[in-house]
Computed example of a mutant assay.
Amino acid sequence: MNVFQRILHRPFFIRLFNWEYWSFPAVYIWIYPVWFFLCLRARSLFFFAASNPRIKNGGFLNESKEEVANLIPDQYHPKTVFFAIPANGHIVLNELMRHGLAFPLIGKPNVGGRGRGVKVLADAEAVLNYVAKACLDFHIQEYVPWKNEVGIFYCRYPDAPTGFVTGIVKKEFLSVTGDGRHTISQLLRQDKRALMYMDSLENMHGEGLQEVLLAGEKKIVSPYGNHARGSLFLDHSHLVDEALQATIDAICQQIPEFYFGRLDIRYDSLEDLKQGRNFAIIEVNGAGAEPTHIYDPRHSLFFAWKEIIRHWIILARISRMNHRKGHPYLSWKEGVQMFRENKEWSVRLAAMPK
């Protein structure tokens, strides 16, 4: 690397020239006038609450993962056990055994987002540590073995017989390939994307990053399909066809009064997914979901703004239609309380095991 390349390899300049790493306000502030116009049209700052009537706040903020999971047909959802704090680690282990869960497992907070508080639990000791440090209600989920993960954005107008897919994001987990000479840490620091997540990776792996992989050996260092945890997001919306549309619509229509949001799905192959086989819905996100295919590094910020606004308009239309059917928006007091709760949740999420 020459001097200029080394300068551009620094996190500050990587973030500066790649908008996908910008903060939420830095991306959204420029299009907030559109949001406020939609609020004015709905005559409510909190119209989104009517979008998915069976989900708290429409799934915009603070929704319970347990409540959402109970809406998903069992055959589509990984085996999951929910726990309230304070919890006893040994009782948690017994419950996991009673429900037939085997390691590895995934621990997640019951309220959250952006991968905060999500942790792979490789053994009983990891479960005990997770439970001991948990400061929010949490759930432990079986680890879905299928290697592929996508986020599929789905919308349906309340008076329409069928819905439609508006975008697909393919998630590639952050990984490294050994050369037989350099440590994992050294190899990661050569990669611009990995460099942006080094603090998280060091916290996750510790001395494990000093391992030297064999030449050609590949290791996933962040097995989380989340942009905030290092996954590369690729726009695969071109893969939407009639078969996939029909399958996703059939699934979503089995989730009561679900009209707008993103399904995070692990699957074996695209053909199996189209046929409704060998897949699991890891999570359902409602009104607060982003069309995450915008984070494909090939997309400009202008493309992202266009897609966000397109989804906002759909969200507003669905919410107004549901409101006319009798589903309420949040009152001013309820909306303010929602944001206060979210602030409290965020503080506690930051303290969850990483």
Rank of each mutant, 00 (worst) to 15 (best):
G167Y: 03
Q275M: 12
N148C: 11
N322C: 00
N148Q: 14
F258Y: 07
L234F: 04
S231I: 01
R266D: 05
E95F: 12
K218N: 06
W22Y: 10
V81N: 15
L45E: 07
Y76H: 13
N94L: 06
S64C: 13
H293A: 07
K274N: 05
H9I: 06
I55F: 02
V34N: 13
P256M: 08
E211Q: 11
S319R: 02
V176N: 03
R229M: 05
P161Y: 04
L174E: 02
S300K: 05
G113F: 02
D191M: 06
P104A: 15
R10H: 14
M198F: 08
V92S: 11
D264L: 04
I220T: 15
I318L: 05
F46A: 00
E172D: 15
P297W: 05
G112C: 10
L188C: 12
E271Y: 11
F302N: 12
Q253F: 00
I255C: 03
S231G: 00
I29E: 12
E334G: 12
P328A: 03
D296T: 06
E207P: 00
Y21H: 10
K306R: 15
Y143D: 15
D235E: 07
L105C: 06
D296G: 12
N57K: 05
I314S: 06
L214I: 07
I309T: 09
F17K: 03
D268F: 09
E20N: 11
W19L: 05
I282W: 06
P158F: 02
S44T: 10
C252G: 07
Y224G: 12
